[in-house]
Amino acid sequence: MQLLMALLTGLIFGLGLIISGMTDPSKVIGFLDLAGKWDPSLAFVMGGAILVGLFAFRFAATRKQAILGGPIRLTTMRHIDRRLVLGALAFGAGWGLAGYCPGPALASLATGGSKPLIFTIAMLAGMAIFEIRERITRLAAKKAA
């Protein structure tokens, strides 16, 4: 049941991305291009999603468990550090270069030809480099201890 719900939510999320225009990189870049002809559409995407999100997260805080069982896993991290800011800056630069962020890239794979595929492979490689570096750091820390 949990898997079916995950599949369904992924599907609805993807349909939302397509309908909103997020899967069109030229539209994303049109939003990021403040100095050119500016297309504010993406502010409406975020606004709409957050509007529903505000209620959902407030409601979730009153519940002890998820409807399908198990805990509701919220991030408890609150600190703002270098890693967070530098990571977000790098992400933003990549987003501005191609016009893809992770969700729209995945939602374009099946129909978008080679460009979203190339982007996605590079994105997965970036994520894999992160995992490898994290593993090396953990091993070094273990050795030092």
Binding site: M5, F13, L17, I18, I19, V45, G47, G48, V52, A56
Partner: peptide
């Protein structure tokens, strides 16, 4: 190129998916 309505509708759908995943799966 401005598409306020379809972008808002898509955004609401993304919000609904986020809410479902949070409340049903706890994620």
């Amino acid at each position: 190129h401005f598409t306020p309505w379809s972008s808002l509708a898509g955004g609401l759908l993304i919000g609904v998916a986020t809410a479902m995943f949070l409340l049903f799966n706890g994620r």
